[in-house]
Nucleic acid binder design. Structure first.
Lengths: 348, 348
DNA sequence: GTGAAAGCGCTAACAC
DNA sequence: GTGTTAGCGCTTTCAC
């Protein structure tokens, strides 16, 4: 009864106006039934549903997502935006981002949504508005707020389904999920102090939101240990290994007096270890090193890297949860993802 | 003249049947003009075109991609598929993939196409057919052929816009772009032999297509150097660092006699260095190590890693070129991407 | 050049 | 239940 029953593509028009172009599934008796059956609608009795699904399968029928999206005004797609500022290098080289993207993709896929990847140069004004209005995604995840705090605040007024990975900042109206960077910085410093270090350098950017928070944690940690903050021990390095390595090599060359390094990320911590080793300083004997992220390689470096671990599984789940809540029109607050100190050979 | 001229969304219907829902751009006089202007159609004189574009911008008008896709039967989207077999771990941890995805995204974005990311468990039959038929993308890139050679051959009969990153295999009808893995294996072994090594172990998988080719290169390299192939020097390890580290540690524990390791990837080469160091073997003095990929970290490990470099920029460009050719209905052959030996401290 | 309409494939709504 | 229709927003075609 349910096989090749005539009628086609636009079942309705086909019958009514004889305008069928033969481009659609020819086996449908009633397209509504098919729609419902494939959607698992309980209005259709289970056995019939299964039968329809099976026939659809043998005919290789899959709903056309463009048409569905147009009709339903939803795309079943989440846009994941990777902002590129001038710091382009970071994303290419930092394993942290792959893991983040991978975990987000897992969470999104689990909900039967697709992932649309945007690499965006955020220096072009209107970048976010353009993405939003193209209606290619039902919601957006932004990995890192870069220096776009104001843009995000402005957009958040009218566009709700947006969640940002990054720091929570004063006066922030958009939803952000991020690690507890300040706590992470304090943990790292407290650990180094406890290991007997007194002259602890900070290696990394200090102005980007996340970096600023880790830097703040570093300063708080020093204060709590009764150590004075010394600006001479702050080494500016951005995100790439090459840059960080050069920066720390220059720092060593100045003859600076330091016995520990707290680095903004594992990647630049590993670069620091390379530079220190090259300069004949032993890690951890001469200089202890602590990183941030706990990338896979941290455990296998020589020496293994002590680091502040970010729980990306938790973070990705949180971000996607928040996003779907917002897509459903529910409120969703910003959230902090916990961090944890992982002590390995580079610091003790 | 071109400002808020009345009529709206469905300009045609709006006028004809007075059914406008006021949901579209209200400022359009003639939607066709807008369509053409935004597409940069030279039919419209340049000054008028610019004016229209500007007005559209001030009104925040962006074409709805779902509607456009439905009408044009194209999505301006490329699907990038990351296959997950049982070797799920590889993609999460291997920086090689991030760089690959990043470079592909760059190439695709440069052509004004969007990137749709699919993480797929390839053990479910019909995974590729389902992706193809959902019509969400105009073309597909598959990163790694996994063990799906037969599926790909079958699909390639009817679906043309598909390019695979991976090995070229006998009887292959789909388009593949991949590094010259055999040459890479030979280069690595020749280098180790020249450095005086004679008992060279192979660390990695030997059955997956790319791995098999690197393994073949290893065997050819041994033969060319007049060295006998010794199955006892083949250490099975898949893609994760943990696994590789355990495998090489076990291998060392057996008391095997070897003075060099050629590893399938940089990631497992780094794991091997970690295991060797832990076991008290010096790299490169006791054991020389050569990897494959030249990930960013290879240059900064201790010791820096000698490796067979894959040119991902070239590879990504090649893949996307081939794909667009196929999307345009032109034939596009498989291609080989060159490799290069980068000698660093781990082998000399 | 300008106005009118068709129709991409789908789903929801409405009438019977 | 079943049949019919509208219409999502866009682009192209056809007629004037």
């Amino acid at each position: 009864m349910w096989e090749l029953h005539g009628s086609a593509c636009c079942y309705n028009r086909a019958i009514g106006r004889n305008q069928c172009r033969d481009s659609g599934p020819r086996w449908m008796k009633d397209q509504r039934q098919v729609t419902r059956a494939l959607a698992g609608n309980p209005l259709i009795p289970k056995p019939l549903r299964d039968q329809i699904v099976e026939i659809a399968q043998t005919h290789g029928y899959v709903v056309n997502q463009s048409a569905r999206s147009l009709r339903l005004r939803k795309t079943d797609t989440i846009g994941v935006i990777i902002p590129l500022g001038h710091e382009t290098g970071q994303l290419i080289s930092d394993p942290f981002f792959l893991e983040m993207i991978g975990r987000l993709a897992d969470e999104i896929t689990r909900r039967n949504y697709a992932v649309l990847l945007h690499k965006v140069v955020v220096t072009e004004t209107g970048w976010l508005e353009r993405i939003i209005q193209a209606h290619r995604a039902d919601g957006l995840l932004l990995i890192g707020q870069s220096n776009q705090h104001d843009v995000l605040n402005a957009v958040a007024q009218t566009y709700k389904p947006l969640v940002v990975w990054g720091a929570q900042l004063p006066g922030q109206t958009y939803c952000a999920v991020g690690s507890d960077n300040v706590a992470g910085g304090r943990l790292a410093v407290a650990h180094l102090v406890q290991a007997g270090r007194r002259k602890i350098a900070f290696l990394g950017a200090t102005h980007a939101p996340e970096a600023a928070q880790r830097f703040e944690g570093y300063r708080q940690g020093l204060a709590e240990a009764g150590l004075a903050f010394d600006p001479a021990l702050v080494v500016a390095a951005h995100y790439t290994m090459d840059e960080a390595r050069e920066a720390i090599a220059d720092f060593i060359a100045t003859g600076a007096d330091f016995d520990a390094v707290f680095a903004f990320s594992d990647v630049i911590a590993l670069a620091a270890i390379a530079a220190l080793t090259e300069a004949g300083r032993s890690v951890p004997r001469d200089v202890a090193v602590v990183g941030f992220d706990d990338i896979v390689l941290a455990r296998h470096s020589a020496p293994p890297l002590t680091t502040v671990r970010q729980d990306l599984e938790f973070a990705a789940r949180k971000m996607v949860d928040r996003l779907f809540a917002r897509m459903a029109g529910e409120p969703a607050e910003s959230a902090l993802s916990p961090v944890e100190l992982i002590v390995r050979g580079s610091s003790v």
